[in-house]
Design a protein around this nucleic acid. Sequence first.
DNA 1: CTGGGTGTACTGATTCGCTTCATACAGTTG
DNA 2: CAACTGTATGAAGCGAATCAGTACACCCAG
Lengths: 123, 123
Amino acid sequence: MLNLDYRDARPLYEQVKDGLRRLIVTGAIQEGEKLPSVRSMASALAINPNTIQRAYEALEAEGYISSEPGKGSFAAANNGVDTGRREELFQRFDQTASELLFLGVPLETLLTRVRALEGGDQV
Amino acid sequence: MLNLDYRDARPLYEQVKDGLRRLIVTGAIQEGEKLPSVRSMASALAINPNTIQRAYEALEAEGYISSEPGKGSFAAANNGVDTGRREELFQRFDQTASELLFLGVPLETLLTRVRALEGGDQV
DNA sequence: CTGGGTGTACTGATTCGCTTCATACAGTTG
DNA sequence: CAACTGTATGAAGCGAATCAGTACACCCAG
């Protein structure tokens, strides 16, 4: 389901968080679908359950999942996502795009790329 | 010229690196222009010179600046940038865009945003 | 030529965040 | 009841980041 990179400088809980978010965003995990339990995912990735929980906790704060004690964690609806996350993404989007333009990438290339993502949910 | 955020979890040298890169990308620092010396910038930001050098070293590896012993560091041409950086940006671009689309942002909004960046060099 | 600027290199000490491990409690479910 | 779930806490170790100090080689204006 996920793979960790120990050579990566990023913390494990962040890799888990970003990985799960991507699965949700790309549609690999559908709305309402149940996520692996903290413990099972921890043993699957061979890391400590606390690390997984930290990732889940952060994802819930962002609004991507919701956890219910005793039951489990589930993918939330796209409309529940924190607005701060939206701002952050817009800023990153602009910065990334402007740097690519600076590097000489044609405007049309970027436009085509965005259109290709529409509905596709690949990446 | 730059401002550091000590509440930010990101390392100082990375904040300096990203900040300078953005100044170059947005045109605030033109090609060939001389950057502040390692020591002067360190005292201006009230941090250790080693931290600045680390940022400069990384930027040179990416191809955004070039340093000459005894003379100084200068903004490089956009064509000298490492291709790995390009790949990284494309990947980030796609991921960011697809997440924004997932959140319900209209395709046209993203397209308009990219067009607005063309040549403008604002951000 | 000399002094002050430049980038670069190395060492040691310290601080701080990340991660692990262990344990515990409370809720849900079959 | 038994086994699962999320959640909470504290202690400990580790490694990255930063700081401090020192040093060398280079360039250039005076």
